[in-house]
Design a protein around this nucleic acid. Structure first.
Lengths: 270, 270
DNA sequence: ACCAGAACTTCCACTGAATGGAAGCGGATG
DNA sequence: CATCCGCTTCCATTCAGTGGAAGTTCTGGT
């Protein structure tokens, strides 16, 4: 009853004992390096890591040393830390990413060659479109997307395609939360989005225009696995024009079909 | 006093208390998933993880749960575990890999388009060539290399280039250990390798033939950063022919120069 | 050159989180 | 139905991890 038998705590601003496990603390350290949006990858000092992870400096010091020893973090000459190659090495072995990427890459290359536009490959992960691959030429319009980026489902071509073929409860939940408007043309009204999703399912293709990045539009199509489930989406992002280019749309469709076939999909109908 | 008040340990085969830290045990679990050579990515049962990591089952159970909770491992329906997307997500943010890849990719695409051969991008990491990127078309000769793979320095094109421009003590150490012979034509004799390295430095290009995989040859060239240091190597792998193709060699050289220039290198001499 | 301050590293007594043996569970196999 | 094998849960024991504090190094201001 009453207060716990705390030793000698000077009131202060809620010490709030940290009941995270060692593992959770180790993870918190890595999470401190998660790059925010489309920024360059982070490089942090020990103190910065400690702050971001909410850990005492000495604990951070010890745990960071463990990460460095294993290769999950690297210490640079200037004393800053960044994510280490070991992490990259294990990361690229993750089955979902690796298998899809390996199979899809040749088709993405073809698509890039025929269109010379940014090519994206993304999957649905939680409430986001997670970008697995991105090909772009030298010219390349500046985009926020990059490999490993998470972008909203309702404002990107791949995102909308993924949402269009997602289980209805996922759609329900996604639309329930307020959708952010990035540009005047971003569609954020739930019912309007629903109507779009139906059109996408009908057409087997999504067309976006100026909803995430000014001056750029995109065309996206679904990729299916052997069971017919949509598991990913491909897209190209072009400079916005008013005319629909049937050749580009056909190229995206073909790429998506190619990958689907390589994944073992044999289209049932149509 | 005498012996510790051990509870009731039956002698047995050296209990050998495990003095690994919690962190080390967590890492051992991830390391259990490191795919051996060119195999498909692993999927393991709890028991298998425990064995590979050398941990008691109950400890493994608890720590694996921590990884799953964070997203570093994923539990599949069948009860098997594999590396998780979180790992991939953080992994692709690793600066070295990300920066080099982003800058190099357009040039690698060009190289692929002009040659239609496997294109590799690798860096020197420890005693291995670590493959950062690999592009291949549909036809594609079967190769052991893949993104994230580690292959020997003396039997691959990129490896030999990296070794040629490595600090002399690295070369020293590498050659000191016995070099494995994969095929009859693999050069393993230290002095012969040294001679090759000198030729590569002179020519700015490496030519390999049937030293790792039967029927395939490769042409590799060095990539330099702004300081002039060789930081990576590009190569194409072709079906072995007896004639040297100057166009292919020129294409590899151009790609390497393009990436170098994009990295800020302005060649000093030549 | 000197000093102040910040950032990092090391130390160590205390303690509660991690450990792992054992028992319980559940589903596959014969 | 019995057995095996792999997974999950439990909990008393203890030692690894903790973090405050002191020591050290680096930075930059005057």
């Amino acid at each position: 009853m009453s207060g716990k038998p705390e030793p000698k705590r000077t009131d202060g601003p809620a010490p709030a004992v940290d009941d995270r496990s060692v593992a959770a603390r180790l993870f918190a350290i890595l999470d401190a390096f998660a790059a925010p949006a489309g920024a360059t990858s982070l490089t942090l000092t020990l103190t910065a890591i400690a702050q971001r992870a909410g850990l005492p400096l000495s604990t951070t010091h010890r745990l960071v040393a463990e990460w460095v020893g294993w290769g999950g973090l690297t210490k640079h000459d200037n004393g800053q830390y960044s994510l280490g190659m070991k992490l990259w090495e294990l990361g690229v072995q993750t089955p979902t990413a690796r298998n899809l990427r390996t199979i899809a890459l040749p088709y993405l290359e073809d698509l890039y060659e025929t269109t010379r536009e940014h090519v994206h490959l993304a999957i649905l992960d939680g409430r986001d479109a997670l970008y697995l691959e991105k090909l772009s030429g030298h010219h390349a319009v500046r985009l926020i997307s990059r490999v490993g980026a998470r972008l909203p489902l309702h404002s990107t071509g791949v995102g909308l395609v993924l949402l269009a073929y997602a289980p209805s409860d996922v759609v329900q939940q996604y639309l329930a939360t307020g959708l952010q408007r990035f540009l005047p043309r971003t569609v954020t009204e739930p019912d309007a989005v629903r109507k779009r999703l139906a059109e996408i399912r009908l057409l087997g293709l999504a067309r976006m225009s100026e909803e995430m990045t000014a001056g750029s539009s995109s065309i996206a199509a679904p990729i299916r696995d052997r069971t017919g489930q949509v598991v990913a989406a491909v897209s190209i992002v072009t400079r916005t024009t008013d005319i629909v280019d049937p050749e580009q749309e056909q190229a995206v469709r073909l790429a998506a079909q190619g990958v689907s076939r390589a994944l073992g999909y044999r289209r049932a109908q149509q």
